[in-house]
């Protein structure tokens, strides 16, 4: 693995955007992207969980490899992520109860966000070192936030326009996501 940290960051942010190119974290992407002022905090919260999960997963992986317990990897990762989400939830509840209510059910659902587990699994599979893992998780989180914010802005615009009845709801969101994804393909090759 000779990728530089910058390459990994750009790659995770744009060329291999978690949501639009790798299909990770689609549930919150389709669920919370209705309004801009919930989309952004949701992205930041997810990024934070990703960072914590990535750090813990890195340490844990060293431990598991040392004891030859690789088959426990999946179970221990998921437990770590669940605890990280719990932490974020408690912090948010204390410092910003309004935001806590706005995010509602989607906050605990970060646990089952595939993007978070995806970060942990991919960094293990690609054998990233510590710095690479951290940049990968931050880049991935930033990419997730970017996709969420873009989608929310487009959808806010769309509420004012006249859409055929048939396409309302999920079908419309999916078509939008397809177009966004199409434009993100223009970044292919950017990260090398």
């Amino acid at each position: 693995m000779s990728e530089s940290a910058f390459q990994i960051f750009v790659n995770a942010l744009l060329a291999n955007n978690f949501v639009l190119a790798m299909f990770l974290g689609l549930c919150p992407f389709l669920g919370v992207s209705g309004k801009l002022d919930t989309a952004f905090p949701m992205g930041v919260a997810t990024t934070f969980v990703m960072l914590v999960a990535s750090l813990c997963a890195y340490g844990l992986n060293l431990l598991l490899t040392a004891f030859h317990l690789e088959f426990l990897r999946l179970i221990s990762y998921i437990v770590i992520i669940a605890s990280a989400v719990q932490l974020v939830e408690m912090v948010l509840k204390k410092y910003s109860p309004a935001l806590f209510r706005a995010l509602g059910i989607y906050l605990p659902l970060i646990t089952t966000n595939c993007a978070v587990l995806g970060v942990a699994l991919f960094q293990t599979a690609r054998e990233y070192d510590f710095v690479q893992s951290v940049t990968f998780s931050i880049g991935g989180g930033a990419g997730f936030t970017l996709a969420l914010v873009l989608m929310a802005s487009v959808r806010e615009r769309l509420t004012l326009s006249n859409v055929p009845d048939l396409a309302q709801g999920t079908a419309l969101s999916l078509m939008l996501a397809g177009i966004l994804s199409l434009s993100f393909m223009g970044f292919a090759g950017l990260g090398g």
Binding site: T170, L174, S181, M185
Partner: peptide, 14 residues
């Protein structure tokens, strides 16, 4: 490619 996934699912839902 990725966009196709979104388009095909969208089309099925339609």
């Amino acid at each position: 490619l990725p966009p196709g996934g979104f388009f095909v699912l969208g089309a099925w839902l339609l």
